[in-house]
Structure formats: C-alpha cells, structure tokens
C-alpha cells in the first residue's frame, strides 16, 4: 500500500515538474525555430537523435551566443558614436566572443594588426568552404501583421508625403496613426455644430463638405458628408 501511495505521489510530482517546465521554458516562436536549426546542424554533424534536454540546452546557448555577439557589436558601434553597426564592430565582437575561450590563430595580436586579416574571419570562411549548405527546413513567412501595418503606414504616410511633411521625419520613428483618427474628429465637430444649430448653414453644408473633402481627402470625411447631407435635405423637405 505504501509503495503504491508513494508512486502516486511521485507521479504527481513528475507531472507538476513537467507542467512547471512547460511554463518555465521559453515557448517563444523564435526559440522553437532556433531549436529546429540547431537540430538540423546536429544532424548534419552525424547525430541520429537527441535528448530533449540536451537539445534545449544547446538551443538556449545558441540564442545566447547570437545575442551576445549582437550586444558586443552594438556596444562597439555605440562607443564610436554610431547607431548602425558595421563589419568592424562585428569582427571585434566575434573576436571577443571566441578569444577568451578557445583562442584562434593570431589572437595574441588582434589589436596590433588590421581587423580584416584576423583569424576569426579566416576560420569562418574556411568553415563556409568546408561545410555543405543545409538550408532551413521550411521558409519562414515574414510577420503578416507587420507587413499589414507597413502597408497601412505607407497609405497613411503617402498623404502627408505629398504635403511635404514626411521629409523631415526620420525613418525609425513609429508610424503615424491612421489619418481617420485625428482628421475625423474635426470633421464631426464641424458638421455636428453646423447641422444642429442653424438652417442657413445647413443649406451651405454641401459646399462645406466639398471644401473639407478637398482639404482632407479622407475616406471617412466623404462618407460622413453624404450622410449628414441626406438627412439635412430630408429635414428641409419635411420643413417645407
């Protein structure tokens, strides 16, 4: 009895550990993609199978390696007051990543000689020549939402562009909100005010709408104009 009870409790423990692991391990898309790439590399080296924990360890180390290289390169570029990194930043980052651990040919004279002739690059080019290409298993689609927002951005930005607003805005700034969000507001206020208050302006509303359309050129402006115009005409007819 005791044994059975014990095993049950053990099972529970295992389950809870598994659940905990599922929650704990990064379930991000990028991690999974890295895992696929890493397992492909392992297979190309000659492995037939892999323990899950070993594969995940190697995957997380790979992603950390990538991040470390990127961080070092960006810190090098920031040191020399640049926002964009270049090949020299990247080479010195690769030097830094590989020199304290394994060492490479010419590691002792890294800072004396030209960066372009350093051993790391030669090793990498040798690696590229030696190994066969094993492309990623599946082509990754670019983020659909991102492309959507980009197309929307192009739509919205193209209008201010014609007005000459875009030239001074740097490319890295976030996108302008949809034109309807800040133009529509004015429009409603104008029409609402005119439409509710006086009949005289109501008659002129069509002209007003046209002017607004000409100024704004937005889709929403046109629709609103039409609606209010019809209503105004009906009211005028009823009044007559």
């Amino acid at each position: 009895m005791k044994q059975i009870f014990k095993t049950k409790s053990k099972r529970k423990q295992y389950r809870s550990i598994a659940e905990y692991e599922d929650e704990e391990t990064p379930t991000e898309f990028s991690f999974k993609l890295t895992r696929v790439a890493v397992s492909q590399i392992c297979r190309s080296m000659g492995f037939k199978a892999a323990q899950r924990s070993a594969l995940e360890t190697l995957t997380s180390i790979t992603s950390k390696y990538l991040e470390e290289v990127a961080k070092l390169a960006s810190s090098y570029s920031q040191e020399s007051n640049r926002t964009q990194s270049n090949i020299f930043d990247l080479i010195s980052a690769l030097n830094d990543v590989s020199s304290p651990i394994q060492g490479f040919v010419g590691a002792a004279t890294v800072h004396d000689t030209c960066l372009l002739s350093c051993g790391v690059l030669k090793e990498i080019s040798g690696f590229v020549k030696c190994t066969d290409e094993t492309p990623f298993a599946k082509p990754i689609p670019r983020n659909y939402a991102a492309t959507l927002s980009m197309s929307r951005l192009n739509k919205t930005v193209s209008k201010p562009n014609s007005m000459g607003l875009q030239s001074h805005i740097p490319g890295w700034l976030p996108a302008f909100p949809d034109a309807g969000t800040y133009k529509e507001c004015k429009e409603i206020r104008k029409t609402g005010h005119l439409w509710e208050n006086s009949e005289f302006v109501q008659e002129n509303q069509s002209k007003c709408g046209e002017v607004i359309e000409r100024i704004l050129g937005g889709d929403l402006a046109v629709e609103r104009g039409k609606v209010s115009f019809k209503f105004g005409v009906k009211a005028a007819r009823n009044g007559l």
Partner: peptide, 29 residues
C-alpha cells in the same frame, strides 16, 4: 535576435556572417 540586442545594420551580408559564425559555433560543439 540582432534587433532584440540593439544591433542595427541593413546589410544582409553581416546578418549572414553572424548566422555563419553561430552555425560554426554550434557545429563545433
């Protein structure tokens, strides 16, 4: 991963270089 760590460069060749370096690292391990 590069964008996540603040590395900004429009050149595809540098991205490829990072990819190849990482691949070399993993392959060695």
């Amino acid at each position: 991963y590069l964008a996540k760590s603040g590395f900004h460069c429009p050149d595809v060749r540098l991205t490829r270089l990072v990819a190849v370096a990482t691949q070399k690292f993993v392959a060695e391990v």
